[in-house]
Design a protein around this nucleic acid. Structure first.
Lengths: 209, 209
DNA sequence: CAGCCAATAACCCTATCGGGTTACTCGCCG
DNA sequence: CGGCGAGTAACCCGATAGGGTTATTGGCTG
């Protein structure tokens, strides 16, 4: 494990302080090298094209686009890209989407640094790794159906304080159809009413406020 | 500005990676010294008692208690304590409570490191500093009345998908009283219905899900 | 100590929500 | 090419939400 197999790392996160911390952790490892740091999705893609890092650490919340979109862009252009999501966010739906988009791991920022370097090594060796706490959260909702795009759209209007009639007008559909969508949302999320549906959707990362 | 006036700093945050980043930034300044790092509220109090730092950087989300409670504990024991809140959270209510509890500044983790050291110097000189983005968010809701403890309690049950009748039973009060509380909450938050009230309360940091 | 505010409670009334049922039309997948 | 799921829509109906009004109590404050 000498100089010939140095792991070249790219970090993408809009928190400079955290990037600094990651940089220190990477630099403390003789077999790892920090190639560059990006602070948004556009930079992420440009830096990846130019540097072709072995490992990319990416936050989900970026100023210009979702980390998942950035992840997907990179993966369509470079299917062999090994990207690790590193975020504070814990909703199961975000995790699922990240993995579906090709992420090799999903780490929380609260995790100890040694787990980070451990995961970087594992992913570099071609393995996918999900830490136990994230895996547990995933398992909690394993059987649940995902909401359709239309259902999420309706739910966002519900969160905005719109009545069924108002939502109907906004979406150019009948009030009855709105009610059906909300009914399905409540069933899928196991919510007692529209309010709990919104609360659960936010908690699970299906929508933001 | 030589060795006789070194600024001694304590950091309290449950994200090791971020603490690492803060440590690097502090160490890069010749006139600053990182005394210790804590990862929860209990440690914060113990470390403060033992070390009496000039400046304490504290996160709001800690594993054992709210950073505001930790802040208040320290400030009642050491009224001269100069504490800077450093967090990702942006709800105006959290900011207000932190300042009321005696915080000297309220910084977001997304801010550039030089602003952090700048603020540490300002606070050490006895000034209070609120960055423009945080100040703007505060100003947005300047005239708004705060929710009472009881109103927040009711609202949390609303977010949990409980009907007015169920909330009444849970809190041993009449359904009419529950309705009045919710009515007041909606007025104070400018919400159209209970669902939007919950959404706004979460957005503004009045409650978590 | 007078007054105000938070919390409590009851009554009435209408709009809205949410449940059950049935049905049509796409587009997709085997 | 037949079925199946998503989106659309209509009807009925009981339960709930939310608006208006009035009133009592207890604690804090000027």
């Amino acid at each position: 494990m000498s100089e010939k197999c140095v792991i070249r790392v790219l970090t993408v996160d809009d928190h400079p302080l955290l990037r600094e911390g990651i940089a220190m952790v990477i630099k403390s490892q003789p077999d790892m090298e920090l190639l560059a740091e990006g602070s948004n999705g556009k930079e992420a893609l440009e830096l990846f094209r130019r540097l072709r890092p072995d490992i990319t650490l990416m936050d989900l919340r970026l100023p210009d686009m979702s980390g998942i979109d950035a992840l997907a862009s990179i993966r369509t252009e470079f299917p062999e890209a090994r990207i690790i999501i590193l975020t504070t966010f814990e909703g199961d739906v975000e995790v699922r989407r990240a993995l579906k988009a090709g992420a090799y791991s999903y780490l929380l920022k609260s995790m100890p640094p040694k787990d980070l370097i451990e995961t970087i090594r594992q992913v570099h060796a071609g393995k996918k790794r999900i830490p136990p706490d994230v895996a547990n959260r995933l398992a909690e909702y394993l059987g649940d159906e995902a909401l359709s795009a239309r259902e999420i759209e309706v739910l966002k209007h519900v969160a905005g304080g719109n009545s069924n009639r108002e939502i109907a007008k906004l979406l150019f559909i009948s009030e009855e159809t709105v009610k059906i969508h909300i009914k399905h949302v409540m069933e899928k999320l196991n919510a007692n009413d529209r309010t709990e549906a919104v609360a659960i959707a936010v908690r699970r990362g299906i929508m933001q406020l």
